[in-house]
Design a protein around this nucleic acid. Structure first.
Length: 209
DNA sequence: AAATTTTACAACCGCTTCTTA
DNA sequence: CTAAGAAGCGGTTGTAAAATT
């Protein structure tokens, strides 16, 4: 899942770490610490750059690192902290013992991003676009098809009053959370609701998304 | 069953911030 | 105060594995 090992023009090794390299890095840090990352690879006998060693240690080899298996509580914390701090991954990682900033960032992008309230701006823009399209094509709201009222009623699930925190009204991740269709994404994200669907709807009044 | 697409995540790169002389 | 070097951070990439067609 990672780049194949190779050497750059300076003879520095890049790409995936081998088991042997991992053991050399662990052994060196356990014995001497990591006061100077730049010097570390030379002293440890590694042909990596210091930056690469630091990254490997911080994100993969250091003790007490958890790997995968995010708990519901951790997911909620990440969502909440991201709403609060934005992409300050190191700041977020401080609140999640055993998780690296890189891992949280990856987890966010692959699992949680789509549920972020920070996407609400984009969502609002999409709703406005839908309204614009509807008015320009004189579409009448129809209960069997997508309409702005339909959009807004679902938006209510995700819009919060300024003084009410999202997480106070959100019922959390249910056991089947990841397998259940998600109204927001499946219906309103531009990725899933292309403009062409509106054209289909115009042509076919019984069209169901 | 094979081909294609999507997902997940380790690792890289470049920029910023911090430290020290 | 300033410059240089080191460390840290966050965006992005590459690719194996999984899912889908």
């Amino acid at each position: 899942m990672v780049r194949a090992p190779y050497f750059d023009e300076n003879g520095t090794k890049k790409g995936a770490w081998s088991e042997e390299e991992d053991q050399m890095l662990i052994a060196h840090i356990q014995r001497h610490g990591h006061a100077n990352w730049r010097q570390l690879p030379k002293v440890a006998g590694l042909t990596r750059c210091g930056k690469s060693c630091r990254l490997r240690w911080m994100n993969y080899l250091r003790p007490n690192l958890k790997r995968g298996n995010y708990t519901q509580n951790e997911e909620e914390m990440i969502m909440e902290l991201h709403t609060k701090h934005g992409n300050k991954w190191s700041l977020i990682a401080e609140s999640l013992p055993g998780r690296s900033d890189n891992e949280i960032k990856n987890y966010w992008h692959s699992h949680l991003k789509k549920f972020s309230r920070r996407n609400e701006t984009k969502l609002t823009q999409e709703i406005e676009m839908t309204k614009t399209l509807e008015s320009s094509f004189s579409i009448k709201a129809n209960s069997s098809s997508i309409s702005s009222s339909h959009v807004e009623s679902n938006m209510d699930l995700y819009r919060i009053e300024d003084d009410v925190h999202f997480w106070e009204t959100w019922d959390g991740f249910s056991n089947n959370f990841w397998t259940e269709p998600f109204v927001y994404d499946n219906t309103f994200s531009q990725d899933y609701f292309p403009i062409s669907y509106c054209a289909l709807e115009l042509e076919d009044p019984y069209f169901i998304c």
